[in-house]
């Protein structure tokens, strides 16, 4: 979809640690090697007999075919938990939205740094940024102040151009 949710560093789906949503019938947990031990611990401690759990472990890279088969086979009432590094989380999140999951049905736990992007209002390209207030576009070199607003269509924060003194 043209304005479907996207995963970005302020996404409301991002949580500090995995917490099961007890209003859902089924929990689908997709995790990579960075999250393995945490996930196994949580499952051992918090899983309840009457609820259904399904896991999908990402080993080295995501097998898209398997991931899609898994996501498309889910029924209403499934809550998705993504526990991985940023790049794996973006892949899984994007595929999940494509398969029909809404932000309310996804919880994301990121291991390691989150990626941020800025949308240059001079050349309409995105560049990866850190948490500085001012940056330079990697495409056209324009100086930009990083704005607080994010576009799901452009997949970046607004970059207000300025001429440095």
């Amino acid at each position: 979809m043209y304005n479907s949710p996207v995963l970005y560093d302020q996404s409301e789906t991002i949580k500090e640690e995995l917490t099961f949503n007890d209003k859902r019938r089924k929990h689908l947990i997709i995790y990579d090697q960075k999250a393995v031990s945490d996930i196994k611990q949580v499952l051992a401690k918090d899983s309840q007999e009457e609820l259904e759990y399904e896991h999908f472990e990402i080993e080295k890279s995501v097998n898209l075919q398997d991931l899609r088969t898994l996501l498309y086979s889910q029924k209403i009432g499934t809550h998705l938990y993504i526990a991985s590094d940023w790049d794996h989380a973006v892949t899984v999140f994007t595929e999940a939205v494509e398969a029909g999951f809404t932000e309310d049905e996804i919880q994301t736990i990121i291991y390691g740094p989150k990626r941020r992007y800025i949308y240059c209002m001079k050349c309409y390209n995105t560049s990866e940024i850190n948490y500085d207030d001012e940056v330079q576009c990697t495409h056209c070199d324009a100086h930009m102040e990083v704005g607080p607003f994010f576009s799901k269509v452009r997949k970046g924060y607004i970059g207000y151009p300025f001429i440095p003194n």
């Binding site: 043209y2 304005n3 949308y119 209002m121 607003f149 576009s151 799901k152 269509v153 452009r154 607004i158």
Partner: peptide
Amino acid sequence: SPNWNLGMSFNE
């Protein structure tokens, strides 16, 4: 900006 605001909700 049409380019920036495309696809945004009224609140966004």
